[in-house]
């Protein structure tokens, strides 16, 4: 699997799920569960005359990152938008339940999210898979498992993927990574272009994009868009994660209530960033990764254990 697309500097955004797994983990350390040869695929897509995939768009297995054993799940954004469906979702649910129940398995789970949300053709099964995954993440965290979301794929993390991301112990995001519930197009379609102009790229990135998520505390570290970038981010986040308990949830309540109060009147991201104490919030957009990461690390609200 070692090729140009998985070398350290290769783009995470451009890569497939399999390339990301290969580029993220130590060389030759990955063992896949329910791989394509087992042909576990969607039992529903044929109803819509759609082709199925032998992995249903999710790659799961175990491997090592910098010598530390990890479990990993990667969504393939290029197959049906990386969507949650009966099989693709159950693979992730099974992985989290395995970590929860078997202490001899790696107690770190990396979720390489790249998903537009629930697969329309399997909407009910997909929505339930998200609900089961969120519960399994919480149960795994309660039993001491670190669950880390890595966001930087083409499909972003929308809908159920956005909620799943915020259920994890830690979140890493790149500039290209988008995290939200309703996507810009969905909001524009339902509420009109006055509410959200999905064609306005700058507006979209400042709303859902990685820099905004990192600054307001929706992500815990900023990754460069490369295999090495996400490797470094995952490694740093694995070192220490918040416990899942009443204290953490009370702290999150406080954190989100404060955010609501402070930013409730803001109409755009730049005004939020100004309130955070950033002197030239207009400069954020064009700031390079290194400079931005350092700036974000200095913002109080962006660095917390309240998740």
């Amino acid at each position: 699997m070692e090729d140009a697309a998985t070398t350290g500097q290769a783009s995470w955004f451009q890569a497939t799920a399999r390339q990301r797994v290969a580029g993220l983990l130590d060389p030759n350390s990955f063992t896949e569960f329910l791989g394509p040869s087992e042909r576990v695929r969607s039992p529903h897509l044929h109803l819509f005359d759609l082709p199925s995939a032998f992995d249903d768009g999710v790659v799961i297995g175990r491997g090592a990152l910098d010598g530390k054993p990890v479990l990993v799940a990667a969504q393939e954004g290029q197959f049906m938008g990386g969507t949650f469906a009966e099989v693709s979702g159950a693979k992730m649910v099974g992985l989290l339940r395995a970590a929860r129940d078997h202490k001899n398995l790696p107690q770190t789970v990396l979720l390489l999210m790249d998903s537009g949300g629930v697969r329309l053709q399997e909407a009910n099964a997909g929505e339930l898979a998200v609900a089961e995954l969120m519960r399994a993440i919480v149960e795994a965290r309660c039993s001491g498992v670190a669950v880390i979301a890595l966001i930087g794929g083409r499909a972003g993390a929308f809908g159920g993927a956005g909620l799943t991301t915020a259920t994890c112990s830690r979140v890493a995001v790149s500039e290209q990574g988008r995290i939200a519930v309703s996507g810009p197009e969905v909001i524009e379609t339902n509420k009109g272009v006055e509410e959200f102009d999905a064609e306005n790229k700058a507006l979209v990135w400042s709303t859902d994009g990685g820099k905004n998520r990192r600054l307001i505390g929706g992500a815990d570290t900023f990754a460069e868009d490369s295999m090495d970038g996400f490797r470094a981010a995952a490694k740093a986040l694995m070192a220490k994660v918040p416990a899942f308990d009443l204290n953490t949830m009370q702290a999150e309540q406080e954190r989100l209530a404060t955010r609501q109060k402070r930013f409730g009147a803001c109409d755009d991201a730049v005004s939020m960033w100004r309130i955070l104490g950033i002197k030239e919030p207009e400069a954020i957009r064009d700031m390079d990764s290194k400079e931005f990461a350092a700036l974000a690390n200095s913002i109080k609200e962006a660095n917390h254990d309240a998740r």
């Binding site: 969120m134 919480v138 993390a157 956005g162 909620l163 799943t164 991301t165 915020a166 259920t167 995290i179 939200a180 519930v181 309703s182 810009p184 969905v186 909001i187 339902n190 509420k191 509410e195 959200f196 507006l203 400042s206 709303t207 859902d208 905004n212 998520r213 307001i216 505390g217 929706g218 899942f244 949830m249 999150e252 309540q253 989100l256 955010r259 609501q260 930013f263 409730g264 803001c266 109409d267 755009d268 991201a269 939020m272």
Partner: peptide, 19 residues
Amino acid sequence: MARRDEMRGLNEYLAHLAK
């Protein structure tokens, strides 16, 4: 469905209630 709620991180608020 509102741009400003998404800007403030609606995914975190909904996940928080579920959690």
